[in-house]
Design a protein around this nucleic acid. Structure first.
Length: 272
DNA sequence: CTATGGACCTGAATGC
DNA sequence: TGCATTCAGGTCCATA
């Protein structure tokens, strides 16, 4: 589920409520993608000073030191409340604080919670290094984007998903942004002209911002930390619409496979 | 270095 | 009804 919009919506739904809280306990369920990296007791007594986001990672800052990196993988979601039921079979991390319990629910367990003493040190540095620019942070520049694409021989869809140029764009929003920009997903990135790169840049900004505003996409069971579903999937132009008429020109939407992932596009609106 | 394919894991939907 | 196959929002790693 979680691409940048879902992670950001999650962050917005609990950041202010957990900030300032003192950690009273932490507990783990089944193993996640990576080990926590410290004993749970290490977290007890620390204070949460804020929640940031980098790409698809949530960064939970702690005082007097340390941070937790949380990733939602493919099926993760978070709940934060003063009263939560006992952990279920897919609840794999609880952070009990003075202001409520933060819980990671993740059936497939591709997600992770990792402790790092410092953002500049491992494991945080390793996980965060190599990430591209934040698309909604004001640092995302259209001409720099075009220059970065010039160095990439892979298809534009792959380049967007790889996250080395720009972070946060996953399978849904890559398809949607390429549709908005009228670009065929199979086009090699270095062949994209400056005007088309500028259009794609704008499309990425627009689709991500719109998705955040709509609470993200809920395909199966995503919800924010208050249990509310997103609605962007209803506005999708191409994602998961194989065979259905393009909302713009009525041509049937096509599904292809790139890098073992489904790609959806309109063969008429999106030109090579 | 790039490109590709497999790995991780569970559940829902589909097909016979 | 039962069982096998396919697919799903991500990303790391081994191999060529």
């Amino acid at each position: 589920m979680p691409e940048l919009p879902e992670v950001e919506v999650t962050r917005l739904s609990f950041a202010s409520r957990i900030t300032g809280a003192r950690i009273q306990a932490a507990s783990l369920g089944k193993p996640l993608r990576w080990p926590l990296g410290c004993p749970c007791e290490t977290l007890t007594g620390r204070t949460v000073t804020g929640v940031r986001r980098r790409g698809k990672y949530l960064l939970i800052d702690l005082q007097p030191s340390g941070l937790l990196l949380m990733h939602l993988g493919m099926s993760g979601s978070v709940m934060f409340d003063t009263h939560l039921p006992p952990p279920g079979r897919h609840d794999h991390f609880d952070l009990v604080t003075s202001q409520g319990t933060l819980r990671l629910h993740d059936p497939r367990r591709f997600g992770a919670v990792v402790y790092s003493a410092d953002e500049q040190q491992e494991p945080a540095s390793k996980l965060l290094s190599g990430l591209g620019v934040e698309p909604l942070g004001g640092q995302f520049d259209a001409l720099a984007f075009h220059r970065a694409l010039k160095d990439k021989k892979a298809t534009i869809k792959q380049v967007l998903l790889a996250g080395q140029v720009v972070v946060g764009v996953g399978n849904i929003y890559a398809c949607e942004a390429l549709f908005m920009a009228g670009i065929r997903p199979t086009l090699r990135a270095h062949r994209i002209s400056r005007p088309r790169a500028e259009r794609l840049h704008a499309a990425i900004c627009q689709v991500l911002a719109q998705a955040v505003a709509q609470g993200g996409s809920t395909l199966r069971d995503f919800s924010n930390a208050m249990g509310q579903a997103g609605h962007f999937q209803l506005a999708a132009q191409v994602y998961d619409r194989s065979g259905q008429p393009c909302r713009h020109c009525q041509t049937p939407i096509r599904r292809i496979v790139q890098q073992q992932r489904s790609t959806y596009f309109c063969p008429d609106c999106q030109r090579p």
